[in-house]
């Protein structure tokens, strides 16, 4: 049963790919849950109500992070229009619509071992996460948002200053795949 495994430098690239994505506009949206629907209409968004669920409307993606908190992602070109819509709606529907586009850096992890690589730092059961859902959780000790876009494709939003640490840990995990162990 003991098989001596040999090094294969190309293997890790096939097993897992880690890349940094081009930044999009990112907002932290806060509004009392009972007013979320009205606000979403004013802003032209679709806001999911269950924590962890994601809705897309056109190019805009919204993730429900808490009972009154959403993460809104949009192409850069939509930024100003969204901010303007928020300003216009504020008097009637008080809310917070914070531009946090530079707070996080987004990593894409894909490949058959992407999930395994994530288990080096994430304590929750990633395997049972539904495709299309997302969750705020912790990788090692860093808060992250993990999106499961496909069976073997994840996005991980990491606060900018935590990125070097998170990358260093992922690189160690990647080296294990290269070693075949």
């Amino acid at each position: 049963m003991t098989t001596q495994k040999h090094n294969d430098t190309d293997r890790s690239a096939v097993m897992i790919r880690i890349e940094e994505l081009v930044p999009q506009a990112r907002f932290s949206l806060r509004v009392r849950s009972e007013r979320a629907r009205v606000l979403s209409e004013s802003l032209g968004l679709a806001l999911p109500v269950r924590i962890g669920s994601v809705e897309r409307k056109g190019e805009v993606e919204a993730l429900c992070l808490g009972p009154d908190e959403w993460c809104v992602l949009a192409p850069d070109k939509r930024r100003d229009a969204l901010i303007e819509a928020s300003r216009a709606a504020y008097a009637k529907i008080p809310h917070a619509f914070c531009d946090v586009s530079d707070r996080e850096v987004v990593l894409r992890l894909s490949g058959p071992e992407a999930l395994t690589a994530l288990t080096t730092g994430i304590a929750r059961d990633i395997e049972s996460m539904e495709v299309g859902s997302a969750a705020r959780t912790a990788f090692d000790t860093a808060t992250v948002i993990l999106w499961r876009d496909d069976e073997n494709s994840f996005r991980m939003d990491v606060w900018r200053s935590f990125l070097p640490h998170v990358r260093a840990l992922l690189d160690l995990a990647q080296a294990e795949f290269a070693a075949g162990l």
Binding site: R30, R32, S101, D102
Partner: peptide
């Protein structure tokens, strides 16, 4: 209170 808090530490240099 109708107030929301958002961490901006990492958004600004």
């Amino acid at each position: 209170l109708t107030v929301w808090l958002t961490s901006m530490t990492e958004h600004w240099a």
